[in-house]
């Protein structure tokens, strides 16, 4: 399956650019806005000032973690569409533990990030276990677990683990010690961005240079051959899904520790879903995914500015993102039909 999801990175990028600018222009014209003004406002809003660039990198970071998670599952031949739920539960664990157990700084941040990683990993592991043990379809399992994750976090935060009050579904605020330090002063960009880059490089190294990565890729690219080469497909599926969830969960933890400074049930505008597109555009290669995350980060943060400046409804961004995914998926399907 992962062969199906991977294509030629360069051509995919070209397709995405054509779709984004082509259909984006059409949508803007329908909204009676000149595409030059619209895209001008978009790029100005994404890069125009230091703080705008910082915000773009915040969005990049928030997409990069779940996209890496989606990618590692896909490289093992598994489609994790539950990254959003894993991210939310990771954020919840980070927010709750961070507010509940104040620790000195050098311990607080690692603890908060680890809590998110473990919670997201555990959530991914459920789907991995069901797949490994019963052969359950991970697409359906992860999709359903998204809903369970949101409802579980909402219940916990409003019920037994309530800390907040004031009517919002959120935990108490994190102490300063548990907040990731800023990378650029007076912005929301924190060291989470650096962590994300490091994770991407490490992941690439793991996939390309370690026995684990080798076996994972073999299981994804040619499961029957991998099985006969002594690779335990069930175990690989379990580990890949756990790792996938852990990355998304870490992403949730960085949003809580770096951006919101508390957990709120609405912390994700669907990062885990956009991440699927990011992973596909990034050709499931961690380094390309860094590039793709940045491109989508530009769309995310520039989209708001575009609405504020050129009065183009921000939904245009959602629209072209969706169309880009469809175009890529279509290319993959056509390619797979040709190859058989």
């Amino acid at each position: 399956m992962s062969a199906l999801l991977r294509g030629r990175a360069f051509r995919d990028v070209a397709v995405v650019i054509v779709v984004v600018f082509g259909f984006g222009s059409i949508a803007m014209l329908l909204a009676h806005v000149s595409p030059l003004d619209g895209f001008g406002a978009l790029f100005d809003g994404a890069f125009g000032t230091r703080s705008e660039l910082a915000e773009t990198l915040v969005q990049t970071t928030s997409l990069l973690f779940p996209a890496l998670g989606v990618a590692i599952a896909a490289r093992a031949g598994l489609f994790n569409i539950g990254a959003d739920g894993q991210l939310i539960l990771g954020g919840f664990a980070a927010g709750w533990i961070g507010a509940q157990f104040p620790l000195p700084g050098y311990l607080a941040i690692p603890m908060v990030l680890l809590a998110g990683t473990f919670a997201g990993g555990a959530w991914g592991a459920i789907a991995g276990f069901l797949r490994a043990r019963f052969g359950a379809n991970e697409v359906i399992a992860t999709l359903m677990l998204n809903y369970v994750a949101v409802l579980l976090a909402t219940y916990l935060v409003n019920g037994p683990l309530q800390q907040g009050g004031a009517g919002a579904s959120e935990t108490a605020g994190l102490p300063k010690a548990a907040q990731l330090p800023d990378l650029i002063a007076d912005s929301r960009l924190t060291w989470a961005f650096v962590i994300a880059l490091v994770v991407a490089f490490v992941l690439r190294w793991v996939l390309q240079r370690t026995v684990f990565g080798y076996e994972l890729r073999a299981a994804g690219d040619a499961p029957e051959a991998a099985k006969r080469a002594g690779i335990d497909l069930g175990r690989t599926a379990f580990v890949a899904m756990t790792l996938s969830g852990a990355l998304a969960g870490l992403g949730g933890a960085t949003i809580v520790s770096g951006v919101l400074h508390r957990f709120n049930t609405g912390l994700s505008p669907g990062y885990g879903f956009i991440a699927i597109a990011v992973a596909l555009v990034g050709n499931l290669d961690p380094l390309w995914i860094v590039v793709a995350s940045f491109a989508f980060g530009v769309l995310q943060s520039g989209g708001v500015a575009m609405q504020a400046e050129a009065l183009v409804p921000r939904d245009v961004v959602t629209l072209v993102t969706g169309l880009a995914i469809i175009a890529l998926a279509g290319r993959r399907v056509v390619a797979s039909l040709r190859s058989t």
């Binding site: 912390l267 505008p269 943060s301």
Partner: peptide, 11 residues
């Protein structure tokens, strides 16, 4: 999402 509040206000 709640994460959008600051983004929107800042923009």
């Amino acid at each position: 999402s709640a994460a959008d509040y600051q983004v929107n206000l800042t923009v």
